[in-house]
Amino acid sequence: MSSVAVIDYGMGNLHSIAKALQHADSRVNVQITADAAVIRTADRVVFPGVGAIRDCMHALNESGLAEVIREVAQNKPFLGICLGMQALLTDSEENDGIACLNIFPGHARRFADHMLDAEGNVLKIPHMGWNQVKQNPHPLWHNIPDHSRFYFVHSYYAAPDDPRHSAATADYPQAFTCALAKENMFAVQFHPEKSQTVGLQLLQNFLAWDGVA
């Protein structure tokens, strides 16, 4: 039976993602864990997160999980979600600037205030709700129609230094990177565990993925 470790570092509720993974594939052994040994031996790793980046990085550094993440991000299928995606970048503008894991060179930037949509209405921040995702080819998009809508809630977005790391974009109002990919790593800004059918399909794809992009 294959196993997936959902990294628990005290940032938010992990039941939704665990339930969604289990729903996507009932044969998978899903473990919510802070145990480095469990994370190291799992077949796949999910790195979720909500909240503020300062607390997130503090928890990862204090617990020693930052090192474990750097290690497993090199050798097995790895999925970052929301803040778990932003934490993979070099740094974030949030909380006056916070150094992150630097697994994907790049920065988490804040959406500008007072941006306008096509009708001249001010765009709200956080960017919250269902937005269309424009895919770049990757096995994790298997069976998901291009421009499908996923559920987002965030005020910061990833700006990778290397455009080849962008696996998808969404518009708000300009295009921003909403998925990152490199070798065995994939990360998304939206919440697949809250994105109904297409979200479950992405999780199912991840659970079937051998980590080859």
């Binding site: 949509d117 096509a118 765009l123 960017h127 709700g129 269902w130 937005n131 269309q132 421009h147 809508r149 987002f152 518009d171 708000y172 109002p173």
Partner: peptide, 8 residues
């Protein structure tokens, strides 16, 4: 193409 308005 942009953010959808939601029905709850």
């Amino acid at each position: 193409m942009s953010l959808a308005k939601r029905i709850i």
